[in-house]
């Protein structure tokens, strides 16, 4: 699975310039590459035993997107991001998060881009089984690690603000889960550094 994703991503990266030059992509203004850090459920998870909430996480993400101008300052920005695999050591659980995103962008100023869109957040957990002795009451008990491959798929409402300088940009991208269900609503975010590869 991981190897297939790697191959897909690497072939995307290498084929992107050729794709950009092709006739079918004549409307394409540029292709961009993301490098970022993803934080899941801002203030929605407990971080320590004293009740502190998680505000920032360490989860590197990479991605690729396209800038398709629509009209004057408006554009359409489909992109794919991958939060790099998180390995939970002892259990061998590997967690991958993939984002398939579609933003509309608006450039009110030459250095500022506002984005609003939607995305599909795909969290995959790959368990390899095994067991663990854990404390339980005054003794220990045996518990088990997951041994299957399962995915959670969510729609998100996405908003972002991007500050651009020359071919680079810094972006705060937010993803709201369960927009219409207050009890389950959560906000995740990614801080991206983006490189825009200009079409010749």
């Amino acid at each position: 699975m991981l190897r297939k994703i790697m191959v897909l991503l690497i072939s995307f990266v290498f084929s992107a310039p050729a794709l950009a030059e092709s006739e079918g992509f004549s409307r394409l203004k540029n292709i961009y590459f993301n490098l970022g850090n993803h934080t899941e459920f801002y203030n929605g998870l407990q971080n320590d035993a004293s009740g502190g909430l998680r505000k920032i996480d360490f989860a590197p993400a990479i991605g690729l997107g396209f800038n398709l101008p629509i009209y004057q300052e408006f554009g359409f920005f489909p992109e794919f991001n991958w939060v790099m695999p998180q390995l939970i050591e002892e259990s061998n659980i590997i967690i991958n998060t993939f984002m398939y995103r579609f933003d509309f962008g608006y450039d009110p100023l030459s250095w500022l881009r506002l984005r609003l869109g939607t995305g599909i957040m795909h969290m995959n957990q790959h368990g390899r089984g095994g067991k663990s002795k854990q404390r339980n009451g005054n003794g220990t008990s045996t518990f088990y690690y997951p041994d299957e491959n399962r995915s959670s798929i969510n729609n998100t409402l996405d908003a972002g603000v991007e500050f651009m300088f020359e071919n680079y940009a810094v972006r705060l991208q937010t993803y709201t889960y369960s927009v219409f269900k207050e009890e389950r609503r959560q906000l995740s975010y990614t801080l991206f550094l983006t490189y825009y590869w200009e079409k010749q």
Partner: peptide
């Protein structure tokens, strides 16, 4: 590639039984 980007956590959730 994995070493470059992969993050690790020390703890993991467990399940009540071996068939999840």
């Amino acid at each position: 590639l994995l070493c470059l980007f992969m993050t690790t956590n020390l703890f993991a959730y467990t399940l009540n039984n071996n068939f999840g």
